[in-house]
Design a protein around this nucleic acid. Sequence first.
DNA 1: CTGGAAAGCGCC
DNA 2: AAAGGGCGCTTTCCAG
Length: 581
Amino acid sequence: MAPPAPADTEPVVKADYAQFASTAEFREYLAKLPAKEPLAIWLNLETGERETEGFGTRIASIEVSSKAGEGRAVWMDEKGEALNALAPLLADSKRQKIVHDPKLFQLLTGRAASIRHATQLYSYLLRPTTANHNFADVVMRQFSAMIGGGPGERADYLQRLAPSLEPQVQEQDLDSVYEKIDLPLAPVLAEIERTGVRVDPKELEKMSRSMEKEVRRLEKEIWKLAGSEFNVNSPTQLAEILFDKLNLQPNARRGKAKARSTAADVLEELSAQHPLPAKVIEYREIAKLKSTYVDALPKLIHPETGRLHTSFSQTGTATGRLSSSDPNLQNIPIRTELGREIRAAFVAEKGKILLSADYSQIELRIMAHFSKDPVLVEAFRNGEDIHARTAQEVFGVGPMAQNAEHRRAAKAINFGIIYGLSPFGLAQQLGIEQKEAAKFINAYFMRYRGVKEYLDGILAETRKTGVAKTLFGRIRPIPEINSPQMQLRNFAERTALNSPLQGTAADLIKLAMINIDKRLAKEKFEAKMILQVHDELLFEAPTRERAKLEKLVQEEMEGVHKLAVPIGVEIGAGPNWRDLD
DNA sequence: CTGGAAAGCGCC
DNA sequence: AAAGGGCGCTTTCCAG
């Protein structure tokens, strides 16, 4: 449905300010708008008239340009009284709201529910592998035009963008993902960002001091072992010490460029030859956690809310996952003991608890659903330990006869299957010969024939269509799948195998978030969703709501979509969010 | 002083 | 020759 071109006569100017109790409130709202970005435009479907909502910081007015490139800002009356004289709003049924960034719109106005076209999401769904979906970049790609700073011009392009992108979205059968998943998710994300997460800065400051001492101590030890002082944080300087001064020899021959790598797995090998590498591993763990979390997070606590407010990007990944930044709260430590101490500094308000809910083995379950592999499906239907089952299938050892090594290897194989494994990768992971790894992979595919057939089918399909697809139809273009360059092609093949799994998991948890958010509101919970970490949701709830919330979350996460296998959800509350696998 | 690349590593 | 998918942040190092 293409709206008429902007009229070239003097436009009708209207403001949608019905939401505001007073002019003062409206002006306060306008003051928070990002400079020069037309926040939204309303399109009158009958007349083609356009109303624009929200421009720059000082603009207290609503304006519509006459022609593309000739926009003009109209300033509000100093007292704000002019607004009261504006025409009443049109009925919503006769208008469509167009925005670029729906999450931003929700953050500023609280009214994303009225959005029909979100051009940023259109752009992302069509080209999820493109890094930027800024307004200017999207306009550039779509119209080969460089936008200036004028608000009217920007509004014009916003108006042109929607009817240009929407048919493409329909053409690619992405309209359902847009309507059912990505658009309704935007206000949910905005609310999570706005709520924030509480951390205890005192605890982190305490840790910082003790970690500082520890880092200094290790640094001195390292210098002593090296026989000279150098910057331990510099891989170049460290490589000189290790490979030139101490003459240590890495086992595995790496690629030319990586010949002098000082990465953790290399240091691990080298620690058999000299005590220094192990000290560097220890040093790095503490230094990393200190600089990235312990010292950085307190600085980002919002002065008014006292909480950390991350920013979620809904258009930043190739697979459909979210990403988190400023700070990234999707990579809070948990693996090591020190890491868990950091995580323990994330706390609930007094009288409340943190509750986390995880999808367990979600990608393997999706694999079971897609492949209908009898063994995999049976294992999940019986609620078996999936790594133990794989160990049994691949190594032929029953659960009782298995040792930790069997399960560890099986787990690596299962992960490898999801990531598109190679004998080399598995061999490196397990520290075994490539031939041995190849045998394991062969054995796996002998037992999981359905998985093998599914993966082969995906490759064939992707070669034909050039895109990977999730259960719900989200796509990821993978043109390199037919590249003559083996390296590019191999990479593309792994991507083609992984993307439907990772992307479907992302779709499922997004749907669950939308449904949970709806119910929390409808059933008047005080509990809030405060974080998403790919396959995990975190809530903060009054202690008394715990049981009800657990039930609700479990229901919605498990029932989000019918798969060939049950969807497992693990729920827990505690100081560390949750326990490790 | 700023920006970007590279190395390294935190998470799922 | 490279060799498991997806991210963001910190540090070093170097160019402008």
